[in-house]
Amino acid sequence: MAHDTAHHESNTKLIWKVFFILSVITIVEVFLGIIKPAFLVDTTFISMKLLNWIFIILTIWKAYYITWSFMHMEGETKGLRRSVVWTGIFLVSYLIFILLTEGDYIYEVFKAGHKSWDF
């Protein structure tokens, strides 16, 4: 509460600015998703299409704006910010890493195994 009881000026301008940024990012995402530029689809980076990397980075960018601006995380104390954001990022990255690695391994087993799945 320390950040908002002290001063009462309106943040409306900033809010509309963030809305504009979020809209532009979404429009870019949808645009890329519809036209699917060939060079982004054909190029892969760490076993994923470049296009998908772009989508994920844009999504995290949007998430940053929502959390920092709309949820007012930038105004919270360092302690609260870190205990929420770092905990989340650490656990989620770990989970994604182990599950995707395992999923890829199972795909290889299905593919290389002696059983046919397509019948």
Binding site: L91, V92, L95, I96, L99, L100, G103, D104, I106, Y107
Partner: peptide
């Protein structure tokens, strides 16, 4: 709650990588 959703989405990612083709 974010961790719960992440669990679901990561499980989705797992299944998707399993049937990536």
């Amino acid at each position: 709650d974010a961790l719960t959703f992440s669990g679901f989405l990561a499980a989705y990612g797992f299944s998707r990588f399993k049937f990536i083709d």
